[in-house]
Write a protein that binds this DNA or RNA. Structure first.
Length: 660
RNA sequence: GCCGGAUUAGCUCAGCUGGUAGAGCAGCGGUUUUGUAAACCGAAGGUCACGGGUUCGAGUCCUGUAUCCGGCACCA
């Protein structure tokens, strides 16, 4: 007998061999009809599978949130069945549920075309209508390998061979079709429903390795209801309007062109935004004990040889030869330059931690397919810094950095999507012993400072050390690594950095490579998408537009603009011979934070009528009052904090909270 | 780099099965002096990404190249 505890707390006993279906039937016939899965002690099981034990038990219907992943997983199987019916000879490989949908990777000599998707979708709907029962079978390993090999499913046979010997080999039958799969699945294909849509085609390498065969991946989205599907499609459509490439053009921030692939032409407004962000982080670094430096853009190959970059990274570097036969490389990163500065003169343990910062213009020859708007470029600016410290300072420096990063992100109104810890890669410098220490220190420090879970990523680290990655999300949900902190025991060794310890001995410092934005450009891309171009006042390239109602007010408008500029605001005037409605509409669409309307009345009374973005009211203020109010509102958050702290209680030290 | 798609006016897009290009907005010229999300009129604007081919004839079909977009790989 097994004991089941139901969601209402009640408990009942069932015979051994009871299934989710039989339990559901014992409660109500209608429940049995609607049941698609069961949850036992947090695990999902097929409805018709004998319950392995008692426990906390729940019957799931199709609309249960937990069922959604299974609907998506089943949709991928239905798609695979449809593909194999329509395109005989196509091999199946894997097809999981993913965020918002699913995919399946197929092996096939000729790639699919977009036209095929409609046919496949049609056939999927027929398979749903056929209501094919989905049943689970446990197979013998050797027989399974032999079977899949015989029917020409080499990939499936390979997957089975690689499964740990302790794993059961389960095959799910779906009508005439079958697939090796761990499950669980819905009882039959009708439960998948028709709220799905095939969305895109892509090549994908078998097991994610570019040395392997390229498979044909078909992506789809699937939902519990038609309404959810519609909502999703609308959401995506809306998100695409926030694309930084669209907004960048519409707001005249920047452009890219063929002659400089992966490099940005910043227009005046975009560059203003860039500078505002740069000025902000510069203040934070100054306050945080960093010293800014500037190192050469192009350096001799010899240095890159010694640093190891020529060997490990050479293929991605822009190089040039001089007429005198020197071989030079444009810097892909700033670290070797900073170590040169560290190496000049003698350093003492008293100098540590030494934090050298640089807005480093880096160039990397990225593969053409990797370029993406201003998120992935060949020329970009890192808000880079290298912290030279002792091993026993690593944890504190890491904690300080993460606090700074959290504070900066919150000032910009962006939210961390995830924090990852990239661990030792196969190709690496340094002994295992050194890596053990490095990984351990980083993880411990990060755990202290980060309030979300840290994802461990084996094999993803840099060749010289483990790496903490701070990821942010763009408009359509892709995540981008922005902030990073990387431990490096290797480069100081290779470039011979040392300091004199207390006992007079020469010691190697540890280097922490760190960046809050990662690349300023990428961070701006995220910022544009997160705000949909409607920047807060302190960031907006144009903060105030002074718009006239009639030409009578032109002179006054110019005076207003001048006064606001004198108060430190970025101001434009609109004296065009257009109706005020037209001007309001245009500047609202351009997301100007403040429109200052002036007509004859304002000119006579020395006032301005302020209209804020997102509101249709107006606020009539004297010009002096408006300048004062807006200037105060336009302060960067860090400046606003120190201003407030200075004028508040003297007991609270200035900037104490954000000094980290 | 790999797979799939796209590329037509400054921008957003139309152009059916081949018959030498069309709209809206913007820009320009004029009229209008306007009170909080689009005043009116007019003229202009294109080597249909680029190169080759098929055809009497190519924006449309074939082919090569480039860039961009969606993925994959890469991101030290």
């Amino acid at each position: 007998m097994i004991d089941l505890i139901f969601p209402d707390g009640s408990q009942r006993q069932y015979e051994d061999g009871a299934t989710g279906r039989s339990v559901a039937a014992s409660i109500a016939k209608s429940l049995e009809k609607r049941a698609v899965l069961i949850k036992l002690d947090g695990e999902l099981y097929d409805l018709d599978r004998a319950l392995p034990s008692g426990g906390v038990f729940e019957i799931l219907t199709r609309d249960a949130p937990e069922a959604l992943d299974t609907i998506r997983h089943d949709a991928s199987h239905v798609m695979a069945e449809a593909v194999q019916e329509l395109f005989p000879g196509t091999q199946v490989t894997i097809g999981p549920a993913i965020e918002d949908g699913f995919y399946y990777d197929f092996a096939r000599a000729t790639p699919f075309s977009l036209d095929d998707l409609a046919k496949i979708e049609q056939r999927m709907k027929e398979i749903v209508d056929r209501d094919e029962p989905i049943t689970r079978e446990v197979w013998n390993r050797e027989e399974a390998i032999a079977h899949f090999t015989e029917i020409g499913e080499a990939y499936k046979a390979e997957i089975i061979s690689d499964l740990p010997g302790t794993d059961e080999i389960t095959v799910y039958r779906q009508g005439q079709w079958k697939d090796l799969c761990r499950g669980p699945h819905l009882p039959s294909t009708k439960h998948v429903g028709k709220a799905f849509k095939l969305t895109k085609l892509a090549g994908a390498y078998w097991r994610g390795d570019h040395r392997n065969a390229q498979l044909q991946r078909i992506y789809g989205t699937a939902w519990a209801s038609e309404a959810d599907l519609e909502a999703y499609l609308t959401r995506i459509e809306e998100a695409e309007k926030r694309d930084h490439r669209k907004i960048g053009r519409a707001m005249d921030l920047f452009h890219l062109q063929e002659e400089a692939k992966g490099m940005i032409f910043w227009h005046p407004k975009g560059w203003t935004l860039f500078r505002t962000v740069q000025d902000y982080i510069r203040r934070r670094l100054d306050a945080g004990g960093y010293q800014e430096v500037k190192t050469p853009q192009i350096m001799d190959r010899g240095l890159w040889d010694r640093s190891g970059h020529w060997e490990k990274f050479g293929a991605n570097m822009f190089v040039c030869e001089t007429t005198e036969g020197e071989e030079l490389a444009v810097k892909p990163m700033n670290c070797p330059g900073h170590i040169q500065i560290f190496n000049v003169g003698q350093k003492s343990y008293r100098d540590l931690p030494l934090r050298l910062a640089e807005f480093g213009a880096c160039h990397r020859y990225e593969p053409s397919g990797a370029l993406h708007g201003i998120m992935r470029l060949r020329a970009f600016t890192q808000d880079d810094a290298h912290i030279f410290c002792r091993e026993d300072q690593i944890e504190e420096e890491t904690t300080r950095f993460v606090r700074l990063l959290n504070s900066v992100y919150s000032d910009f109104g962006v939210h961390l999507d995830s924090v990852k810890l990239a661990l030792r890669p196969d190709l690496r410098a340094g002994t295992d012993e050194v890596w053990d220490i490095a990984e351990d220190k980083l993880e411990r420090a990060a755990r202290q400072a980060v309030n979300i879970g840290i994802e461990r990523m084996p094999g993803e680290g840099a060749f010289y050390g483990p790496k903490l990655e701070f990821h942010l999300r763009d408009a359509i949900g892709r995540t981008w690594q922005c902030g990073t902190l990387q431990l490096d025991f290797v480069l100081p060794e290779r470039l011979d950095a040392e300091y004199t310890a207390e006992d007079g001995s020469k010691q190697r410092p540890v280097v922490l490579h760190r960046a809050v934005f990662g690349a300023v450009e990428r961070f701006l891309g995220i910022l544009i998408e997160n705000h949909a171009g409607a920047f807060p006042l302190w960031l907006a390239p144009t903060q105030v537009v002074v718009a006239t109602i009639t030409s009578d007010a032109d002179d006054y408008a110019l005076a207003v603009a001048q006064e606001l500029r004198a108060a430190g605001l970025r101001v434009e005037t609109d004296l065009r011979n257009e109706k005020i409605n037209y001007k309001i509409r245009e500047h609202s669409l351009a997301k100007a934070p403040v429109i200052a309307v002036v007509g004859r009345r304002e000119a006579e009374e020395g006032k301005v009528a302020l209209r804020r973005f997102g509101s249709d009211g107006q606020e009539i203020l004297s010009l002096a009052q408006a300048a004062k109010t807006l200037a105060l509102e336009a302060l960067a958050p860090d400046v606003a904090r120190s201003t407030a702290a200075a004028s508040a209680s003297p007991r609270e030290p200035v900037g104490a909270r954000e000094a980290g």
